[in-house]
Computed example of a mutant assay.
Amino acid sequence: MPSIAHPRQRILITGATGAIGGALALHYASSGCHLVLHGRNVAALERIEAACLAKGATVTCASVDLGDAGALGDWLDTLCHTATPDIAILCAGKNTHPPGPGELERWDEVQALLDINLKTPINMVQHLVPAMKAKGRGQLVLISSLAAWHGLPSTPSYSASKAGIKAYGEGLRGLLSPVGIGVTVVMPGYVTSPMCNAMPGPKPFEWPPEKAARVIARGIEANRARVSFPFPLDFGTWWLAVLPAALSQWLIKRLGFDHLEAP
Rank of each mutant, 00 (worst) to 15 (best):
L79I: 09
I13L: 08
H38E: 02
H127F: 08
V59W: 00
P130N: 04
K162F: 00
R254S: 05
I4M: 13
N123M: 11
L118I: 13
G164E: 08
I143P: 00
G164L: 13
P202S: 02
F235D: 01
E49T: 10
C196Q: 15
T120N: 12
R47E: 13
T84P: 05
W107D: 04
W238H: 09
G21L: 06
T82Y: 01
M132R: 09
L72T: 10
A134T: 11
A16L: 07
E206G: 01
L79R: 06
S144I: 10
P130R: 06
V215M: 00
P202I: 08
G102T: 12
K119S: 14
L76V: 06
G67W: 11
A50I: 05
L152Y: 13
T120L: 11
L113D: 08
R173F: 10
A147G: 13
Q126N: 09
V129A: 12
K162C: 10
K55N: 08
P156L: 14
P101L: 06
L104N: 08
I116G: 03
L53D: 03
L113P: 08
P7E: 06
S3T: 15
G21T: 07
C61M: 01
A262S: 04
P130F: 01
A62N: 07
G67Q: 12
N123Q: 11
R106E: 04
A29H: 12
P178L: 05
P121F: 04
M199G: 13
N197W: 03
G169T: 14
R214H: 10
G15K: 07
W149D: 11
A19E: 04
A160W: 15
V64R: 01
P200K: 03
P208I: 06
H34Q: 13
L118K: 09
E46T: 15
G73W: 12
S31K: 14
V179I: 08
E221F: 09
F231T: 10
A212K: 06
V125S: 07
I13E: 12
T184Y: 01
G73V: 02
P130L: 07
